[in-house]
Design a protein around this nucleic acid. Structure first.
Lengths: 185, 185
DNA sequence: TAGGCGATGACAGTTTCTGACATCACCTGC
DNA sequence: GCAGGTGATGTCAGAAACTGTCATCGCCTA
């Protein structure tokens, strides 16, 4: 696998994941990743804006959430719409449970990765909020519903990742959302 | 003002703020900041862990929040405790309204600064959550109350910063919290 | 088969950030 | 007064992350 072989981005991602597991995020340089993928450092930065981004390439998530919100039945409460969109995404996210937990561990250990994760959550909230507004939901309700659902997802994901016994992620989102309702109610 | 004059950290912060306003965050190097403060780049990194941190040096915030939670009257609801703690912090944060708004503008324009801002919000939520648990609140309620209050603060702060007409920040937090209750209820 | 096009390489350069050691100002005990 | 300790700063070298620029490669098409 090198230079002109297909799926350079995928190979870079795979190489990065392997190296992060083998020797940790800090001690892996971008040059290491590129070398394992049979490419150069410069090419890495053409596919990923920075070194951290390789762990957050789930670009389709926002699109899927947007599509899910757009396809929700009429007359439903905004919070219910975005919550179900997130539930559907949960299965995609935790498809490879072992990697998901490993990845969560790596992110948890590195402040700069936690920052990026929070930023990505913010993007998801924006996508959901925009989707709701396009359905005619007023701006404040859209923003609050989206942020509340993403908050629930974030806390649920933390619990899921740190609990080796935990099975499916989606139900945990409902649990956290219920706790949020109790706390604010 | 140079080398052995007092308050090196303060001078670095002041120089950074001036330069960020004058020529933007990107085009200001750490060497520029240090030079204006009469110090060296190396000394900058002894006072701030990285270039971004100079805009987030409000270290006392977490302490003040913790103290505020610890001093709250017994028998109050957790959400009420953390909300009042945040309201008290609002006045500190917006003491210099002009700089607060300028700073918010700089942060909003730079993804890497938005990341850091979100991370700091996370630290505030952790501080509030810990404070609640030390009062005997169960872990889930503490976490949810803290995160809900910080979410309300974050959205309120966004609205305040982007609305030149907005006066005090604290009442906006209550408004957003009420919206959150409506949305989840 | 020539030429256009997109992806990659090569290379130099800037900037951020770190480690190691020297130097300076101040304070303390004698 | 002065030797020595202590904390803050300077100096220097260097790694690593990123960026700009131009050359090169493989493929596709006229």
């Amino acid at each position: 696998m090198s230079r002109w072989d297909p799926d350079a981005k995928g190979r870079l991602g795979q190489a990065a994941r392997e190296l992060f597991v083998e020797q940790g995020f800090d001690r892996t340089t971008v040059a290491d990743i590129a070398a394992r993928a049979g490419l150069t450092e410069r090419t890495f930065f053409r596919h990923f804006v920075d070194k951290r981004e390789v762990l957050f390439a789930g670009d389709r998530l926002a699109e899927q959430l947007t599509a899910s919100v757009a396809g929700a039945p009429a007359g439903e409460r905004p919070l219910e719409i975005v919550t179900r969109a997130i539930e559907e995404a949960c299965d995609l996210i935790t498809r490879d449970a072992q990697w998901s937990r490993r990845r969560a561990g790596i992110v948890a250990e590195h402040p700069e990765l936690r920052e990026r994760e929070l930023a990505k959550m913010g993007l998801l909230a924006s996508a959901l909020s925009t989707g709701l507004r396009e359905r005619g939901v007023d701006a404040a309700t859209a923003e609050l519903s989206a942020e509340a659902a993403v908050l629930a997802f974030r806390l649920a994901y933390e619990r899921w990742a740190s609990d080796a016994e935990a099975q499916r992620l989606a139900p945990l989102v409902r649990v956290v959302l219920a706790e949020l309702r109790d706390v604010t109610g």
